[in-house]
């Protein structure tokens, strides 16, 4: 017993006090800055790079850093607040910086804020994900990130949830279960796409075994880029979306 108490005291408090202003290490590949009017598209195995105008689509990008290592046209900052309520806004073009992006990336919906601002319960569905995004979502609830302090938690049942968090490119076999889960979630509800796979199919976009009907059929409320999504990206996306 004494050992237990000593250990507890030794560990102290480890939560990140100011989640909104926490910094991640320099090397983290976050918001991309485009420094040239053309980028060699062939560098990107994901098809995330396009030209006229030169752009990187954060909805496709896995932040692998390949482009930054091989050209001077793209540079990654460690800015991690990458989410947006609009799919189009994830496409970053030449001259954009993280501050401009962040200012308009998330539109707070007053009604959502009123209903879910103090408590947001989410049901996570892994639909073909690689377990990378899933591990980071689990990390959101650990003692460091402690998402629960904002009233945001993952639920065991969709019937207790206010929204879905989808990871993975949506494999054919998961399409039915995902749709079912959506139907089981009471209204009003929100849908959040987490990670390159969920947003665009990511590295699996050319697979013949996907069924992404869900995405075109339902309204998507929030897009959170990453591969996997960093816990700070995820938590801040929700805080900004809820206007907290």
């Amino acid at each position: 017993m004494l050992d237990t108490l000593k250990l507890r005291i030794y560990q102290g408090k480890q939560y990140i006090k100011d989640i909104k202003n926490a910094t991640v290490k320099e090397k983290f590949r976050g918001f991309p800055i485009i420094e040239s009017d053309t980028i060699d598209e062939t560098i990107c195995p994901l098809g995330a790079i396009s030209n006229n105008p030169a752009a990187v689509d954060m909805g496709k990008c896995t932040f692998c850093g390949c482009c930054a290592r091989n050209t001077k046209a793209v540079k990654f900052t460690n800015f991690y607040k990458l989410a947006s309520t609009s799919r189009e806004k994830l496409i970053i073009t030449e001259g954009m910086n993280e501050k401009d992006f962040y200012k308009s990336a998330i539109e707070v919906n007053k009604e959502i804020k009123k209903i879910f601002g103090h408590s947001l319960k989410l049901r996570q569905v892994s639909a073909g994900g690689c377990n990378g995004c899933e591990m980071e979502l689990n990390a959101c609830s650990n003692v460091n990130f402690d998402m629960g302090r904002f009233g945001i938690d993952f639920m065991a049942s969709p019937r207790h949830a206010d929204g879905l968090v989808i990871t993975g490119p949506i494999s054919e076999n998961m399409a039915f279960a995902l749709e079912d889960c959506y139907k089981s979630t009471p209204d009003p509800k929100i849908v959040i796409l987490t990670g390159a796979c969920a947003i665009s199919g990511g590295i699996f976009q050319n697979s013949q075994k996907l069924n992404r009907e869900f995405i075109s059929k339902h309204k998507i409320d929030l897009y959170i880029p990453g591969c996997p999504v960093h816990p700070l990206t995820f938590i801040n996306a929700l805080l900004d979306y809820l206007g907290i």
Binding site: P45, S126, G128, G129, G168, P169, S171, E172, N173, M174, A177, F204, N206, S207, Q208, K209, L210
Partner: peptide, 15 residues
């Protein structure tokens, strides 16, 4: 199992 299946081995052949 099988719900996560997305034809990865096939993708290795093409890209």
């Amino acid at each position: 199992l099988g719900w996560q299946s997305k034809g990865v081995e096939q993708l290795f052949l093409t890209s």
